[in-house]
């Protein structure tokens, strides 16, 4: 297990953006009065001339980001996941259909935001973004992956993209120097009885659940689905041939999220039964992130329980 102090992917994002953005003059970052929370302020401090404070007006921020991108910039438009996803039609037309190199950044994803309650929780953003043609949808599981994604979004990716980040701290799951590959399922742990495919905040908990289940004699694979679009159809199909059961785990509504994405693939390729686990099509509520993860069974204990129940079915 990593000895590095856990950090939130939003924090890693801000640090990466400040580092990569300083090297690339075409990077312009916009925020809608949440830069202290999204951590885009780390870029703002380093490159104040290329940080654009748009005020509390997300749809205008997204449109302006598109206009900048259509004029040669690579733009990051940052707010909470719920607030950017709420301006879906602007993302659909001015960003995606325009083919603008905008990176829509949604932080504080899922019930992991905690006490602020449901109105601040992005729980449908993955489902929305995934339906847009050409839109890249990424959700890192730790700081190493976040750094790799931010660099790729600046230097390589020519399409519009959505980056989903956590408020809460996450344990590092990848070694230094590890290479992230877009469009590839990231298998963190091999196993033959069941595969957990997780994304974002709950990935580390899925790893702990797998460890606990291993002690009971179960062979559990864990795959980190960080490249939600492009999606690794072949990798998911191969996993579905290898195990009898796939349990998807995400801090997002089970409708439209990674569970849906995986089920869509396996429905066509055959193989394992897919059980979608996450926020079970209910509204969120206030509570500590830990209490909410426990309630929604996204903590290690809850995930292990779900896997046991599904194996017993």
């Amino acid at each position: 297990m990593s000895t590095v102090k856990p950090i939130a992917t939003r924090q890693a994002f801000g640090e990466a953006l400040a580092a990569v953005g300083a090297e690339h003059n075409e990077v312009v970052v916009l925020d809608a009065d949440l830069s202290k929370s999204t951590k885009s302020e780390l870029f703002a401090k380093k490159c104040p001339d290329r940080f654009i404070q748009m005020g509390i007006a997300e749809q205008n921020m997204l449109g302006v980001a598109a206009g900048l991108a259509l004029s040669g910039k690579v733009t990051f438009a940052c707010s909470f996941a719920c607030f950017v996803a709420g301006r879906f039609e602007t993302i659909k037309i001015s960003v995606a259909y325009a083919g603008a190199r905008v990176r829509v950044v949604g932080t504080h994803a899922g019930v992991g935001i905690g006490e602020d309650g449901y109105s601040q929780m992005g729980l449908e953003d993955v489902g929305l973004m995934r339906t847009l043609p050409e839109m890249v949808v990424l959700q890192p599981s730790d700081d190493v992956e976040t750094h790799a994604m931010v660099r790729w979004l600046v230097t390589d990716c020519t399409q519009p993209a959505y980056l989903r980040l956590t408020r809460q701290n996450l344990r590092r799951l990848h070694p230094d120097g590890w290479t992230w590959t877009p469009g590839k399922l990231d298998v963190l742990r091999e196993g033959t009885d069941v595969a957990i495919i997780a994304s974002g905040g709950p990935v580390m908990n899925a790893m702990d659940a797998a460890e606990a289940l291993a002690k009971e004699g179960r062979s559990v694979a864990v795959a980190n689905l960080s490249s939600i679009k492009p999606l690794d159809h072949a990798g998911i199909a191969a996993l579905a041939k290898k195990v009898k059961l796939i349990v998807t785990v995400e801090d997002h509504n089970v409708i439209g999220g990674i569970g849906s994405a995986v089920a869509e693939v396996v429905a066509e390729t055959g193989g394992a039964r897919v059980h979608r686990h996450g926020v079970l099509d209910v509204f969120g509520e206030s509570g500590t992130p830990e209490a909410l993860y426990e309630k929604h069974r996204l903590d290690p204990k809850g995930i292990a329980e779900v896997v046991r129940e599904q194996l017993a079915r």
Binding site: I52, L62, G63, G67, S94, A98
Partner: peptide, 24 residues
């Protein structure tokens, strides 16, 4: 220049283009 017709979006995009001119 941009996809339009979903009314209300064009001025933001044009604003972005004008802002790019200022930056550059």
């Amino acid at each position: 220049e941009a996809p339009t017709g979903s009314l209300g979006q064009g001025l933001s995009v044009a604003h972005g283009m004008a802002l790019a001119a200022k930056l550059d």
